[in-house]
Design a binder for these strands. Structure first.
Lengths: 139, 139
DNA sequence: TTGCAAATTTGTAAAAATTACAATTTATAT
DNA sequence: ATATAAATTGTAATTTTTACAAATTTGCAA
């Protein structure tokens, strides 16, 4: 687990015009420190230990706000759960259908957009791979 | 709306070793005739008119079975709803964040898989574009 | 045919996930 | 200090999904 300073977290929030409340800082920090694409549930359960009064509603609202502002990304690769990613640089994702883990995949190529119809505006492109991860294959 | 013969529907089901019950035929036919990537809700509501006793459970189970057998695809582009696609040939999808419609996009290029780690097996690759569609832009 | 066993579907109820919203708490600026 | 705005909480309502027993339908053998 990477250690992220409070300063980094505050800066990232303020860059997007979001006020750094205790809850927001905790949520963003969690996403930056845990690059495992956690679900709302995981985030809520983990942070409840540090912030016992934390409300599930706050987690929902905060993640939605972060997504809207482009601070984080919602990874909808798994139809069941939404996974959140604190890192928004261009990269793809891999879902293992056995263990349900989501992995980051370097995306060292350009995705052509030629096929998108005239008049459509693309704001985001995601590449999702599904399959079986190494661990699950060797078991 | 394209008209799909009963024969086509039955063949597709039997190819995958699925017995062609009334419900299964109706669901598959709906997906083949309506290329709008309907949600479970839409499928259930529409088909309930033809099959008044149709159960939501059956729709859930059937769609899951179809996906497992590779007869259809679940499009998880929209974190809120799962969209189902009766056409499984390689193509990408575009989600309009205004009207929430999902559009098919020709994918006339190969997606490199070089970046997937050694030892991982890829069974499916999806490209999802998000943005605004022509209709919503001109409004 | 008839009847049995397996497969499928139904309907209800429970569980889980999400949303709405009023009340409370916290932060900010005067 | 105090008023105002912003954010969070907690509960309840709503929606979505799952579990599962009962009922129905189907395929097949006698």
């Amino acid at each position: 687990m990477e250690v992220i300073t409070k300063e980094t977290v505050v800066n990232k929030l303020e860059e997007k015009g979001i006020r750094p409340s205790v809850q927001r800082m905790a949520i963003l920090r969690y996403l930056l420190e845990h690059r495992t694409h956690p679900s709302i549930d995981e985030i809520y359960n983990q942070l409840s230990e540090q912030i016992p009064t934390l409300s599930l509603t706050t987690v929902y609202n905060t993640l939605e706000q972060f997504c809207e502002k482009g601070l984080i990304k919602a990874i909808s690769i798994d139809g069941k759960v939404i996974h959140y990613d604190g890192y928004t640089h261009v990269h793809a994702h891999f879902l293992c259908t056995k263990c349900r883990k989501v992995f980051d995949i370097d995306q060292n190529f350009e995705i052509p957009q030629a096929a998108v119809p005239e008049g459509f505006t693309v704001s985001n492109t995601e590449v999702y791979y599904t399959g079986t991860c190494k661990d699950c294959l060797t078991k």
